[in-house]
């Protein structure tokens, strides 16, 4: 059973890591102005914050997504990404509650990517990522992770 749970954890780690890694990568390799345009669709975001968010979020997604994928600083990375997931859900939820129209496509994966999700699909993915992230946060040891390798002295 314990072994089975470890494999589930491995799947969660690779999946969530890859989601964020890809999401950050597609945004970072596109012209940043395209992401400004996406963020402007969420009318709750103050326009002065848009450039800051557009520059910072993709890097956090990319770096911590990569860390999680590799199992480096696994708990910190899953904590950061879980908080980000919560903030995405909050943004979508508050935008909807404030009566604003949600964009047809969330733009979460960068507009040039192969993945295009509606805000509803993204909320479902975020809920999955949130619970998966919490599970990873509560787990100390991870299969095939950099952390485990380092703990064993790099052997």
């Amino acid at each position: 059973m314990n072994r089975f749970v470890k494999w589930i954890d491995l799947f969660l780690r690779l999946f969530i890591g890859l989601v964020f890694l890809y999401s950050g990568l597609t945004k970072l390799t596109e012209p940043i102005e395209n992401f400004y345009g996406v963020l402007r669709q969420y009318q709750l975001l103050p326009s002065v914050l848009i450039p800051v968010i557009a520059h910072v979020i993709p890097w956090i997604e990319f770096i911590f997504g990569l860390f999680l994928f590799l199992g480096y600083m696994t708990r910190l990375s899953s904590g950061v990404l879980t908080l980000m997931t919560l903030s995405f859900v909050a943004l979508l939820g508050f935008s909807k509650l404030a009566g604003g129209e949600l964009p047809l496509e969330c733009g979460c994966f960068g507009q040039g990517s192969m993945i295009h999700l509606t805000p509803m699909q993204v909320i479902l993915l975020d809920i999955f990522n949130f619970f998966g992230g919490v599970k990873l946060l509560l787990t100390a040891d991870h299969l095939f992770s950099f952390d485990r390798w380092a703990r064993k002295g790099g052997k």
Binding site: G37, V38, Q41, Q43, E101, P103, L104, E105, Q111, H116
Partner: peptide
Amino acid sequence: PQTQKTPASTTDH
């Protein structure tokens, strides 16, 4: 405060 809400852009997907 914004009085009229207008979509910023339309994506192609």
